[in-house]
Design a protein around this nucleic acid. Sequence first.
DNA 1: CGCGCTGCTTTTGTCGACAAATTAATGACA
DNA 2: TGTCATTAATTTGTCGACAAAAGCAGCGCG
Lengths: 240, 240
Amino acid sequence: MSTAPADPAAEADGATAAHRVFDLLSEAIISGELAPGAKIKESALSSRFGVSRAPLREAIRRLEERKLLIRTPRLSARVTELTPVRITELYEIREVLEGMAARQAALRMQPDDIAHLRDLLRQHEAALNATEDDVYRQGTADEDFHFFIIQRSGNATLVQILCDEYYNLIRMVRRRHSRVAGRARRALQEHQQLVEALAERDGDFAERLMRRHVAAALRGILGSLDAETRTPQMESGIAA
Amino acid sequence: MSTAPADPAAEADGATAAHRVFDLLSEAIISGELAPGAKIKESALSSRFGVSRAPLREAIRRLEERKLLIRTPRLSARVTELTPVRITELYEIREVLEGMAARQAALRMQPDDIAHLRDLLRQHEAALNATEDDVYRQGTADEDFHFFIIQRSGNATLVQILCDEYYNLIRMVRRRHSRVAGRARRALQEHQQLVEALAERDGDFAERLMRRHVAAALRGILGSLDAETRTPQMESGIAA
DNA sequence: CGCGCTGCTTTTGTCGACAAATTAATGACA
DNA sequence: TGTCATTAATTTGTCGACAAAAGCAGCGCG
């Protein structure tokens, strides 16, 4: 039934009904319960969530803002389709933006921050050795790592764009396409290199490493997309 | 009364009432009729625009997405305040994003596109020679130039971010802070250099020029902000 | 005389219903 | 039988009203 919020970096579950519905709907979209391209019927969803159409519309509006829905004036909203082109565009933007974040973070990092990052990587490594398939938690660790660096860039607007507005979309890409064999361990190595560059306050190198890291992630995703071309996706509509 | 839409690159005036109100409200905010920090009272505005609160709320939601309003769960929405920090953050992001756009555009430019850009610059120059103070139209020409290059980057997501989501905010910054003496002519020169780099398909140089151009614009704005520190702003609330 | 409490006003969040518009369904016609 | 026009059924956009929460004023109390 997936009624548990369990949404990190999101507003508290009980702020308003609209926020609650927003969390529920994002989860439904990201998990694939609402398949890409599926039409969003307001009355159906409002009755499903037990709220009126007003808060549901607010949630839809917010999901459109976060690029999880596409809405055209009089037509129904539809769930975003993650085409290779779209994913590429998104990751190219991530590349320059997170590269910039890494550069600026390198100049502002405190010893405590470096220690925290090293700790994160230790946990990441442990999780990697312990489980072979828990991609979800691994993705969360990856997010923690990236978000921490972004936050240390000191650019609040950048933090908002990457950690808030595009958070769900990136999570959706990762959740659905980012289970490339062996990629996790290489990613960990890249993270470790990046932390060293940050520790040395080498903004130039940190930016370069981050850009390569994001570009490599994109290549992995595109490669796996190529491999699974025309693999039947057994996702169902909302009527579970 | 300023009921004329006159909003370039925006949706048609009559798509829905919410769109119309969105245009009206953005204009009111950008022009300064709604002063920064001013509270947005839904009922007052809905009666002012002659619509119900539903489409007004939709417009508010969209304006929050475009960063022209800040809204906290139960408090009233407030008009964004353009602090120097915020402007700096925005322009640093523009720098990397538009730099990237220029690089990619350099590789995709067609002869027609170069001709169009040269034509734009001729018009820009003519306008600059003709009028001494029409900053608004000059700003529009500047937008046309930047937007065209961004669009030729081929990255639709990037176009959406820069030409749609941040369009109004950038316009607001320009409208309120970008009338630095002599900056317009230097900006034109920088544009001309940029077009040459694009014509030569020198993506590396185009990116560098664009970044310098945006950074210079930011310096101009910050300088003028410094100069007018504590200058009384004679903006009034909505009750005109 | 300052501070906290109570009650009132204002404002947002939510609801149910109506109207316009789109989509589909049906039937007529070439 | 295929295509198009007309009509029925959804679905979105909009409205006015109610309820809950926040802000504000006046009052009592230490």
